[in-house]
Write a protein that binds this DNA or RNA. Structure first.
Lengths: 204, 204
DNA sequence: GCTCAATACGAACGGTGTTAGAGAAACCGA
DNA sequence: TCGGTTTCTCTAACACCGTTCGTATTGAGC
């Protein structure tokens, strides 16, 4: 096996340290809360002093931004991993359930990505693009089912975010709300089929 | 007109200063964001030094708590001021619209009361009781319409919070989502009438 | 071996919420 | 009207925060 050029090995180590910092950050954020992340604490967890972090991230917001990007990529992956059956009701249910599960399995991540309560923090355009990709994939799937009008899509997303928010604040980690997802999708399905004949595709 | 006892006048001035501080706090929070509230800034706005605030509130969280209580009382008032017509669909619509309007007319208040993103802040039991009173009033109204099962109530609140969250993040102050409220209530109404015959009361 | 960039560090700056203690002002009973 | 007491307000300070500066150390490239 060929040795990599030294340039790359250096960049590799840099990336590895970045990843290690982000892992530690997630750990803190999940146990102490999103806003409880302190650079001095974080640096301590990876065996550094606080200013050293600035060799890997431009600012604290840059760390949040990288975490946001990781979250957006994770969601994209989960959507892509959700199989399409061709049955509209089943696929709708899977889409909402995927979103709700993604939100409720990590409240800190949900807060970072969807509540946006860190003062002054906005995801960078490159990071935001990843999140947009996930939403567009969801919209494309809805469109394939025949749901194309903005009002229905708004209803759909409002239902999803509402259920996720309720679950996180009332029953984090519980399963009381997964059944609610079924109710919500049934309700939405009936509503939407009154106006649009949902298309049924062949299972792929 | 009788002079009030001096004790009371003292307490009155104390309460007036408290109110003045809270008004200034709302102003800051509405223009700069919830987490941007600083005691030194706030004290400056009411012509004090920061430590003087501690004569009126035990801590910064106590200020947030008082603001939370004001918000909860405001919601209670708005629900009580919403007239009941006796028509289930109209009353359901009014209930959601009231909640969504309350949330979206002041995003900072919404964040304080419903997103709960201030690290370490929890409303005190007395303050929380006011908020519970508003929710119970809403549940009582739903019960009068015949909506009594937990799943339907969950669906209802999920819809309301979801629409409010969407409106605040996507179109604060706009009216795009008020029509969505109508859609959502119609949808919920159809769903619920499939299982429960909504009662129709005489207008009061 | 020298050069240069990357990394790590201690010290410090301005900001935060909060506490301690001193001083002033207002109210109370006599 | 006079002490005594309570209430308010202030300055100074503490511990923490994100961040910057300047310096020392490291290690790869010529």
């Amino acid at each position: 096996m060929l040795e990599k050029p030294i340039r790359d090995r250096k960049a590799e180590r840099h990336a590895a340290t970045r990843a290690e910092i982000l892992d530690a950050a997630w750990e803190v954020v999940r146990s102490e809360g999103l806003a409880a992340l302190s650079l001095r604490d974080l640096a301590g967890k990876v065996g550094m002093q606080a200013p050293s972090l600035y060799s890997y991230f431009d600012s604290k917001h840059a760390i949040y931004d990288a975490m946001f990007a990781q979250g957006a990529r994770a969601y994209l992956e989960q959507v892509r991993a959700t199989p399409l059956t061709g049955d509209p009701l089943t696929d709708l249910r899977a889409a909402v359930r995927c979103f709700v599960r993604f939100c409720s399995e990590d409240p800190a991540r949900y807060q970072l990505m969807f509540q946006r309560t860190i003062p002054g923090f906005e995801p960078s355009p490159e990071t935001f693009a990843i999140a947009i990709e996930g939403l567009e994939l969801l919209e494309r799937r809805l469109a394939e089912l025949g749901v194309t009008d903005a009002r229905s899509i708004d209803l759909f997303t409002a239902l999803g975010t509402g259920i996720a928010a309720q679950q996180i604040s009332n029953d984090p980690g519980g399963d009381r709300w997964t059944r609610l997802v079924d109710d919500a999708v049934d309700m939405f399905f009936e509503h939407v089929t009154k106006h649009l004949p949902l298309t049924r595709r062949d299972p792929t």
